[in-house]
Amino acid sequence: MTRQPLRLAILEAVSVLEEAGVPSPRVDAELLAAHLLGIERTRLGLVPLVDPAMVDAYRAMIAQRAKRIPLQYITGSTGMGEIDIEVGPGVFVPRPETELLLAWALAYLEGLQEHPPVVLDLCTGSGALALAVAHARPDAVVHAVELEPHALAWARRNAERCAAAGDTPILLHQGDVTDRNLLTSLEGRVDIVVSNPPYIPEGTDLPPEVIEHDPHSALFGGPDGLSVIKPMVSNIARWLRIGGAVGVEHDDTNGAQVAELFAQRRVFGDVTEHPDLAGRPRFVVARRVPTDVEARRGGSQGGTGV
């Protein structure tokens, strides 16, 4: 059978995706072609001709994307830090913006070399943040919490795969991050908390890839986007050791409110808002400081500034 030019197949795919209203038709068309061929996107130019069977498989993938099925659901994975995470129906697809929260966490952990750090990832979803931290810091003891059974199953699958590849296993917990009785054994022991919780205000207009595929419970945080974050702050206060730090991702409409939730608590200091690459408010960090009573008792001041 006659081989066909890959370039023409990609041009056809771009046209199909443009017609379907996909936001980045050329990028997605090239990423799907690269995924199917098992090569880097930058190497597509080195593949001038492809078999008809590959073109048929490619068109089937493009048809899925044209239905606004998330690209990551079609490829079956997405990246976080230096690892790949499997995703699919029933679990939230990690966004590139969360890489900034990961970078902050790893930079903070650089200052913790005197003991194996204890890390807690709240609303872990696919396990992306927790597993990326465990990969980068094999000495860390990483706990991850997820409420939804389907998401937890994805996290467990990813954790098992990463452990089989040689990464330090993480400790998965099913639970509600707003529950005051959750993980009482970790009170005062955690060096750093990271979280990408449900934070989108109800009623926000979202693209089909998000509203029709990401789990509702992983997206929305009540009318103001803070229904999970507000009660979570109290739990973070009891989990963090003095000197420990927290980073919480949030909707770009409520950065100041999230910062205030931490600032109004006496146990938090150095509250700082961080923007994403587009300059929009994206996550807030804070440090656990001693209260007057804790200071009089001689509470430890370990950790680094945030």
Rank of each mutant, 00 (worst) to 15 (best):
R3G: 01
Q4L: 14
G21Y: 09
P25K: 13
P25L: 05
R26I: 12
D28L: 07
A33C: 13
A34E: 01
G38M: 07
E40V: 00
R43N: 06
G45R: 07
M54P: 00
Y58A: 00
R59C: 01
A60H: 05
I62P: 01
A63V: 03
A63P: 00
Q64G: 02
K67E: 09
G76H: 13
G76M: 07
S77L: 00
P89H: 13
P94C: 06
R95G: 03
P96K: 12
T98Y: 03
E99I: 12
E99G: 08
L100F: 00
L100N: 06
L106G: 08
L109W: 15
L109R: 13
Q113W: 14
V118W: 07
G127I: 13
A128Y: 11
L129H: 09
A136E: 09
A144G: 05
V145E: 05
E148G: 04
A155Y: 09
N158L: 04
E160N: 04
R161G: 08
G166E: 03
I170H: 10
H173R: 14
G175Q: 10
G175N: 11
G175R: 07
D179W: 03
S185A: 09
L186G: 07
L186R: 10
V190F: 07
P197A: 08
P198N: 08
E212W: 05
A218T: 03
D224P: 14
V228D: 00
I229S: 05
K230G: 10
V233H: 11
I236P: 00
R238E: 04
R241G: 00
I242Q: 00
D252M: 13
T253H: 14
N254G: 15
N254D: 11
A256L: 06
E260K: 14
Q264W: 08
R266H: 09
V267T: 11
G269C: 05
D276R: 10
L277K: 15
A286D: 06
P290V: 08
A295E: 08
G299W: 13
G299R: 11
G299K: 08
Q301K: 12
